[in-house]
Design a protein around this nucleic acid. Structure first.
Lengths: 224, 224, 224, 224
DNA sequence: AATGAATGAGCCTTCATTCAT
DNA sequence: GATGAATGAAGGCTCATTCAT
């Protein structure tokens, strides 16, 4: 009661919606549960966000906005730092953004919401892609360009980027099942940096191998 | 009409359900649309599969069953073959199983359905994990054990496995967004083997690096 | 399996239907449950009895037929016996017919089915009234005529009959609630005759009082 | 339209539900018909009463509540009045509560609803028993205790109470069939008091007879 | 700014019945 | 004589949205 006087109704709704959309997905989540969790009226959601979809778009924007301001893509590493270090920062940033539980009910709250958008992007995701994801991807591309050297063609750059991102995202999206199959490497708040470190090393190895085999096999393998 | 005389109603329902569940997810999919697509009555779904959930479970079982019989985990490569070759087969198998469009309306039908289960596993997924996924994971573990050599501990094996699988799954799950961000490396039926080849090389590089750095840094990085 | 070879399918259905209709009522009972309980096919019910309603009519007829042949209205007492004794037999007969559990899953199986018909008589009950209930009522009327003496008018006979029957039926219909409110006087197989005895005495007292007060108050009280 | 402006939607629903539940029973009644009869939306029933079952429970509570406030158990007769007069009031009260048609579409609306609960008590009836029926029964028991004198044991009190109540309830429950078999003694609004008067006299006679025969036959007849 | 009441559309399921075999 | 498959109708319930206040 006390702290709710300083937090506005829309803010409470936004927080509850992030939680519930993340857990249940857009369709399965109901605005009634969100309203209840936010201690607000059902109609107030439509009042403040026009639509269930409008609320969802607001949640998404809020999520990426806070995520990138808390964990910037470079994680504080200078652009002049060696590309290996910048890759390390990039991967650490992704893991923290996807799996940090700050402000979320449980681990991987934001991760699951984002993973869902990768599966079936809603219209609300389009502006997010333009505003956050593409610039973020470009940073990775520039890091990889330096690492691969010799001005690598997109046919090599793109799969490399996807392999790096794929490992990161998989930890966010696969958490529930991973938890059921192995006790090790489960993404928890504590070992988050340790896992990021592993993915970094693995990726460095992968990138180097791609760089090495390029001269003799690129054309056969990657040419469109 | 002509080919429907030889295909039983349950089969038609199963095919339509796989398609629609894959596109819309369990909750958003409606049995009415499935029945319409299968040219069957709504009640016939309950008759043959008891439940919407029963139908979903049948789709899942059918999916993995057909997937693994069409593309076995070893893809025809002998168990005595060098581990590099078996890893290559393993990765190729995964890609084909996840992204092959045979019998599906659009590309990545099965992949999205499975990816969804990774996000929020339903009760129907539990038996699938036991029957298909765990054994499949064990095969990968045995391959990695050989590649890493020196009887690697689970703290190394597990993340390696996840990094390999993560890359494969990401292509299935991220397809819609990837398509929007880059023209290259989009998973299509034609370049499926080419992408598998890339992931194989990348993973070999990653695994080797992990193997190399193990002696001097294992304890700091991976110890629980 | 062994005894089912001598019992025909319609007979098995009839038995199961009596049980389930009695427990659940016409509407709530489903032919599927009946078919299952009878170890028969759902369609066989429609085959043998045309309708759910047809089955119900058959159950009703069967019920009264067996009931009255096992426990005749006079219960073996001669028509020349004193009316007190014949009333006693009449009441005992009703209790046994309504509450005997022979051939029924639980106590008061037939009673509840009949009580239900009193509440909302179906079309199937019409012939039962003509064939069984009216003749049965006429027997009671003739007993009461003798007991009341002086050729009593219908305005006195009818309520007397209803008061006697009311007590009997109430034990059948009210059993579930009675059981919740008192440990005594619950209609069980064992005390069935004891309860009948009580109702007999109570009714004799009631009838005598009506007989006594008739001369001076009949016209005011009962005239239509 | 005119009088509906002052009657709230829940009230209209409640009235219609009492009518239809009484006529068709819980299972056969449909909320759609109730909503139509109440000139309300189907969903409004779920909104105001949560459930079909919730609505039913509300109807039941409303029924007993209004019934006992309009026709109290003592019907205005003082507790110090002779037990004969109090029995008369008790019986008159029951008849009016069960058969009064005020606020009901047809005669015996409430009676049939209650009779149904005696046949197959729903969960919603449990609180009603505790709140209304048990206290009501206790009043009858105290009247009978005085009438029988000599501190009668429960083995005598209980059946006496059941015989009195049985006659009352039977008129409510048996109305449809009674109507088909005799033109006399049909419970209509007009002769309601006349019938109550008869049942009162009949019961007094019955109770007296039980009282008289007690000394010499109690043990044989009623002992458990 | 915010809410309680009410609504219409749609969903899953059940059920009695029919039909071809 | 009997059955498995299939169907159309209907029922209870949920949900996002709107409206008057």
């Amino acid at each position: 009661m006390l702290e709710q006087t300083t937090i506005t109704t829309p803010e409470r709704i936004l927080a509850a919606a992030g939680d519930i959309f993340g857990r249940d997905g857009f369709k399965a989540a109901t605005i009634r549960r969100i309203a209840d969790a936010a201690n607000a009226n059902v109609a107030s959601i439509n009042y403040h966000f026009r639509d269930k979809e409008g609320l969802y778009a607001a949640v998404l924007e809020n999520l990426f906005n806070k995520g990138f301001s808390r964990f910037p893509a470079d994680m504080g590493v200078e652009p002049e730092a060696p590309p290996e270090e910048r890759l390390r920062a990039f991967i650490r940033g992704m893991f923290h953004r996807l799996l940090s539980s700050e402000g979320w009910g449980g681990l991987s709250g934001p991760g699951r919401l984002i993973a869902r958008e990768f599966l079936e992007p809603t219209l609300s995701f389009e502006p997010i892609i333009e505003k956050y994801i593409k610039p973020h991807k470009d940073i990775l591309i520039s890091i990889l360009t330096e690492l691969l050297g010799d001005s690598p063609p997109p046919e090599i750059l793109a799969p490399c980027a996807l392999s790096v991102i794929g490992q990161c995202i998989y930890y966010a999206l696969g958490a529930p099942v991973i938890r059921k199959m192995t006790e090790h490497s489960n993404p928890t708040e504590e070992n988050l940096d340790r896992i990021a470190e592993f993915v970094w090393q693995f990726s460095l190895g992968g990138i180097n191998r791609i760089k090495e085999i390029r001269p003799r096999s690129t054309t056969q393998i990657f040419s469109a």
